[in-house]
Nucleic acid binder design. Sequence first.
DNA 1: GTCTATACCAGGATAGAC
DNA 2: GTCTATCCTGGTATAGAC
Lengths: 207, 207
Amino acid sequence: METTTPTSERQLSTTKRSAILSGAMQEFLAHGYAATTMDRVAAAAKVSKATVYSHFQDKEGLFMALVQQLQEKKFQAVYGSPEGQRLQGPPRQVLHHLASTMLENIIEDKPFQAFMRLIIGESGRFPELARAFSHHTPRCFLSLLKEYLSTQSGLKLKDPEAIARIFIGSLVHYVIFQELLYAKEVVPFERERMITGLVDLIVNESV
Amino acid sequence: METTTPTSERQLSTTKRSAILSGAMQEFLAHGYAATTMDRVAAAAKVSKATVYSHFQDKEGLFMALVQQLQEKKFQAVYGSPEGQRLQGPPRQVLHHLASTMLENIIEDKPFQAFMRLIIGESGRFPELARAFSHHTPRCFLSLLKEYLSTQSGLKLKDPEAIARIFIGSLVHYVIFQELLYAKEVVPFERERMITGLVDLIVNESV
DNA sequence: GTCTATACCAGGATAGAC
DNA sequence: GTCTATCCTGGTATAGAC
């Protein structure tokens, strides 16, 4: 029975589906969940509203599908990157480079910032999405760094995982405040100074 | 001309106004900006909708007034607290106590967490509110800590302000992830371990 | 599966009596 | 200043033709 379905139909269908998801991304990232209308999603996807509802159960289902897709994309983007393998080298360089890359990556990526706004803003109403986010997204960075720090016995770190969390946390907080909350316009703090301070604190050679 | 206004009228007016703000707080913190309806605000304040509109120009105006009020309240709550004065004593105790107090304060205060969700979530659509938040809220903690660290020459800190930002940032990030994004349910990390790791990192006596 | 057209409801904001 | 009643717009979701 399924053999009667021509390939063209299936392709058309998945094409529309991804068009809808693309339009949904645009709208949800720009206006948030509640302020996004299915009309505008349909318009952005150049599809009729009914088509949207034939692919997704309702607004909530579309939203969840979109967020899941964004998470997967970001996840594999990070995993596939040159950073995704393993860290090696002297601590000062490795940490400095990691911090620079992380900040650069996130600060340059405005859609991802909008995504962070969305996830945090809707975390009260969509706890499952928040849980999925906090489960996947920072995980790889964290374990990568934790593993590296554990091998650097020269640093004499009592609790490498705690240090890894402080490292990532400081940087993510820096992005949230300086970028998402516009602190860079009102209480500026140079990026390089933050990175250097952080690296110096961990690689404490007392030089 | 204003002398003809009896005190009772004025009092009634300000009473209603604060009732409206209280209802608005309940609704906006629970549902976010877009999903909050003026009907429910009026109902929560036990006032008619028209009364709400007689005190505030529109939904946006009410929202801004509410956020301003919340900021002022939190600001003076922190300033009036016993911590608000000055830090003194040995670094290990002072830092540990400060971190404990900060975390306890925020983690216990669910409305404030909802407020953080709201500010971050709406920062794209209400940049002025985000700017005001990042200008006021973490300011006192930051300068307090920065000043303290500057006096502790025994710690040999190259850049006390950077360290202060790392300190606050790690803790705020801890709250955002563990609490707001429910990481505590999926990737738990004990509060005390975080604090100890942070203090040990800064007070590096190599013991 | 996809479109057009529409049912149905709710939200923001206001008019007018008191 | 405050209420009741209402206007109008725009939202989600679906019915029915193709």
